[in-house]
Structures are given as structure tokens and as C-alpha cells.
């Protein structure tokens, strides 16, 4: 009789501890990241190793940064997404909107490897860590542009009139590109009049909204020179097209994809563990090999072929990137967009 009681008590205790365990270790977490080859890379380089190590499944919530931000704003109070990938710029807007939870870097075993630029703080707490960098460099058609362009000034070369592509403010790189050009051409005025006058004189073939539209235009020879993301440009080069990508003497503007823990998540520990997995050298080198995303952590060794395709180009480093203060860019965004609409997109 006592044996039976003991047995059933033990069984009940085991059952209870299982139930308690199930509460702390979720079966799955939801991570919002991008679609296409970016999503595939995040799945292979971060999500799968994370599931292998923890047994927690990763449910992908596909969408671009702005869509993810909208989703986070809709779900305040009842968080469905646990970890969100969003680009620089949108990251700051999300923090200001109060949809992010602080990231406790001390809890992350790999946080020490993060580059100092890769931690984004608001006051005393970190709200985002970088998942890797990409840049907007100079892309050109090697059969139409014989010498490697050394400067952004080359876009104004008469020979390429009507066949130049640059991002419009509808693209995340559009507004920062205008601010970058102002810096590159020494235009220090607040209104950037000289830069806008110069842009107005540029005979463009395409002011692109999406990176895909730029790739398409270079592929079909619609444009022969312009500004494009290192990731998109190297995809074209890898496909065997006569395309070159270079970092001109004025440098390149760059930004990053960032990871955030969502405010109100019920799986805060698993979310932190997911980010910790993404900060391993293995994950960073995997993303560098698949997307040419510049690692935000130290201790990553890559082949020379991948090295030259990184956002800073061959021999460069994170220091050679022009990383902007996004709060400043976001403040200037409405005015720059409005002026672009009136003077350039007309």
C-alpha cells in the first residue's frame, strides 16, 4: 500500500517538474527575419544550429524591417514574435516606439566578441546587437566601363549619361546615400543645396525602390554604373555577369541587420540564447559566406575570396565604413524625401 502511495507521489512530482520545465523551456520561439536568400541564410546559419543545441524550434515570421516593425506595433501587450531582425534606422524607430526589451549583454556568453560599434545603446541599456554589415558601394558594367572607377564622381561622367542607377528615398539606403554624398563632396550645409544641385544634374536611368530592381537593371544592361549593395552586386558577379564592385576613395556608406528582443516576450531566456547563437564565430562566418555580410564579431576567419566581397572590400575593415547616426538620418528623412520628390523624381 505505502509503496503504491510513494510511487504515485513520485510520479506526480515527476509530472509537476516536467510541467515546470515546459514553462521555462518553450517548444518553439518566433523569430522575425527577411525573406528570400537572406531568410534561407539566417535559417541555415543561426536557426538550425540553435535548434540543434537547445531543442527549441524556430518559427520564422517572414517580412522586411518595416513590416516587422508594424507587426511589433500591432502586438504590444501580447507578443507573438520573440526575436526580431530589423535594419539600422528601423531599429532606432522601434526603440523609440517602445516595442523592444533591453538585451542583457552579461547573460550572453558570446557578447564579449562583439565589435564596440555593433552594440546599440539607449541610455544605459542595449536595445540591439548587429547581425552583420552590408554596404552601398559602386557597381559598374565591366564591358562598358573599362577602368575601375576610383571616385563617386565617375557617376557624372558624360559617357554614362542616362545609364546611372542610384537608390531613391523609398529604399532604406536612399536618404543616407544623399547624406553620404554630401559628406563625400564636402557639402557641410544643413540643407545640402550643393548636393541636391549635383544630383539634379545627374542623368539617371533608374532611381530604384528595391535592391531587386537595381539588380534587374544591371542584368538587362539598362544601366551601367551606380550605387548598389555589396550583397546584390556580388550575387550578379557570382552569376557570371560582366559586373564589377568597388569601394571608391571616398569610402562607402554602410549599415547592418540587427537583432532585437521583443518587449513582452514570454520566452526571454530562449530569445537571448538565440541571439547568443547568432554571435558565434561559426554563425558569423556562415552568414559572411552566404550573404557577404561583414561579421560584427571578432575571431572570424574567412577565405580571401569571401574577404574581398565583404562590405569594406579587400583589405578593409569595419573602421573603413561610414556608419551613420540613424537618429540624425531619421530626423532629416522627411525633408530629404520631400526635396527629392520635388527636385529629382520629377
Amino acid at each position: 500500500m505505502w509503496n503504491k502511495v510513494l510511487m504515485s507521489t513520485a510520479a506526480a512530482l515527476v509530472g509537476l517538474s516536467h510541467a515546470a520545465h515546459a514553462q521555462t523551456t518553450p517548444q518553439s520561439i518566433t523569430v522575425a527575419y527577411y525573406g528570400g536568400n537572406w531568410g534561407e541564410a539566417f535559417d541555415a546559419c543561426v536557426a538550425q544550429p540553435f535548434t540543434k543545441a537547445t531543442g527549441i524550434k524556430v518559427v520564422a515570421e517572414i517580412g522586411n524591417s518595416t513590416t516587422t516593425l508594424s507587426k511589433l506595433q500591432q502586438q504590444t501587450g501580447e507578443a507573438v514574435i520573440d526575436v526580431a531582425y530589423m535594419d539600422g534606422g528601423i531599429s532606432e524607430i522601434a526603440e523609440a516606439a517602445g516595442v523592444l526589451a533591453p538585451i542583457d549583454l552579461e547573460k550572453l556568453s558570446n557578447a564579449a566578441a562583439l565589435q564596440p560599434q555593433a552594440i546599440y545603446k539607449n541610455g544605459d541599456h542595449a536595445f540591439a546587437v548587429s547581425a552583420g554589415y552590408y554596404s552601398l558601394g559602386l557597381i559598374y558594367n565591366t564591358s562598358e566601363v573599362s577602368d575601375v572607377p576610383q571616385s563617386w564622381e565617375e557617376l557624372w561622367n558624360e559617357s554614362y549619361a542616362g545609364a546611372v542607377a542610384i537608390p531613391s528615398p523609398n529604399n532604406s539606403a536612399g536618404v543616407p546615400f544623399v547624406i553620404f554624398l554630401a559628406g563625400a563632396f564636402g557639402d557641410k550645409s544643413e540643407t545640402m543645396d550643393a548636393t541636391f544641385a549635383k544630383l539634379k544634374a545627374l542623368d539617371t536611368g533608374l532611381l530604384y525602390d528595391t535592391s531587386g530592381a537595381a539588380s534587374n537593371a544591371f542584368q538587362s544592361n539598362e544601366v551601367v554604373i551606380g550605387a548598389h549593395f555589396n550583397v546584390g552586386a556580388w550575387d550578379l558577379i557570382d552569376a557570371g555577369l560582366p559586373i564589377g564592385f568597388t569601394v571608391p576613395k571616398e569610402g562607402v556608406w554602410a549599415t547592418d541587420a540587427r537583432m532585437h528582443i521583443v518587449k513582452g516576450t514570454k520566452n526571454a531566456d530562449a530569445a537571448a540564447e538565440f541571439i547568443d547563437t547568432a554571435l558565434t564565430a561559426e554563425a558569423a562566418s556562415c552568414l559572411a559566406e552566404r550573404l557577404y555580410l561583414g561579421p560584427a564579431v571578432t575571431g572570424v576567419t574567412l577565405s580571401p575570396d569571401v574577404e574581398k566581397k565583404l562590405p569594406w572590400g579587400a583589405g578593409g575593415s569595419i573602421e573603413s565604413l561610414h556608419l551613420f547616426d540613424w537618429s540624425d538620418v531619421n530626423t532629416k528623412r522627411p525633408a530629404v524625401t520631400d526635396r527629392w520628390n520635388r527636385e529629382i523624381a520629377n
Binding site: T66, N170, L207, D209, R333, N341, A345, N346
Partner: peptide
């Protein structure tokens, strides 16, 4: 349009998607 002609729908979309106004 290649970003060089603007219609009203594009302008409205731009405010929603990139300027957030």
C-alpha cells in the same frame, strides 16, 4: 517610372512605408 515620374498612389505609399507620416 524608374522612380522618375510620381503618381499620387506612390506618394501616399512612400509616406506610409518610409517616412512613417
Amino acid at each position: 517610372s524608374g522612380g522618375k515620374v510620381t503618381v499620387l498612389a506612390m506618394l501616399a505609399f512612400q509616406q506610409y512605408s518610409t517616412v512613417f507620416d
